[in-house]
């Protein structure tokens, strides 16, 4: 392997890369790239994984909803891994503690520390399932690591670094389009994630109101509410 890039490498940088390279880069070429990136991350920023030991080093499913595949990240400090999975695979097989879904551009902001802990849950476009604490820990851990996705990609694939392998060379060419594509992605993908049936919602709402009223009545009957 060639020399390590100067800046820290984000564990999710390949997510971005994949977003840009989705068509030209087949799975077989992408996976070694992911492995390289996570290994570099481990070497340069062991503290990210060390911070996650406080929540027992969870596995995460990172699901950019605008891409046809997702990532499973294992955060064991000794052997972290980042694995490409297809979006239509059964999620139970991944054995993850939590999943984070959202448009690619938001996941990158999360990664760069631009979405902070308090704001993490405010966005309806970022959906967190499973262990909320683990996701908060992930955010805090990466925020502590001065990650800059732009710089990471530059250092990993830019003209000054030696390409790590063929896949990286292909990806590197795509990098020039990075900023423009990101902009396009951001405007295209901020639509609501889930559309719901209004009629069904209204029915549920009615039922819930009834339940709420019943709960109250029940307590009144036993004479507790004055």
């Amino acid at each position: 392997m060639s020399q390590a890039p100067k800046g820290p490498v984000a564990p999710l940088s390949p997510v971005l890369l994949a977003g840009l390279a989705v068509r030209p880069l087949p799975h077989q070429l992408l996976q070694p790239l992911l492995t390289t990136a996570i290994k570099q991350m481990q070497r340069q920023h062991p503290d990210v994984f060390e911070r996650l030991t406080s929540v027992n080093s969870p596995r995460f499913l990172i699901d950019p909803v605008d891409l046809p595949f997702s990532f499973v990240m294992d955060t064991q400090p000794d052997h972290p891994s980042l694995e490409l999975v297809k979006s239509d695979q059964n999620e139970l097989e991944f054995h993850v503690r939590a999943s984070v879904r959202g448009p690619l551009v938001l996941l990158i902001e999360l990664l760069e520390g631009k979405i902070d802990g308090d704001a993490l849950f405010f966005s309806r476009d970022l959906v967190i399932e499973g262990d909320t604490e683990a996701v908060l820990a992930l955010r805090n851990a990466v925020d502590g690591a001065d990650i800059q996705v732009h710089n990471d990609l530059l250092s990993l694939f830019g003209p000054l670094s030696k390409p790590v392998d063929l896949a990286a060379q292909v990806a590197g060419k795509l990098f020039n389009r990075f900023t423009r594509d990101l902009h396009i992605l951001s405007s295209a993908t901020l639509a609501p994630l889930q559309r719901k049936c209004d009629a069904q919602s209204a029915a549920i709402e009615d039922l819930e109101e009834t339940v709420t009223a019943l709960k109250k009545q029940l307590r009144r009957r036993s004479g507790k509410t004055t």
């Binding site: 604490e133 996701v135 889930q194 209004d198 919602s201 549920i204």
Partner: peptide, 13 residues
């Protein structure tokens, strides 16, 4: 604590 936080998507809310 986040460990006890849950979000439930109930469709309309």
């Amino acid at each position: 604590p986040a460990s006890h936080v849950r979000y439930e998507d109930k469709g309309n809310k």
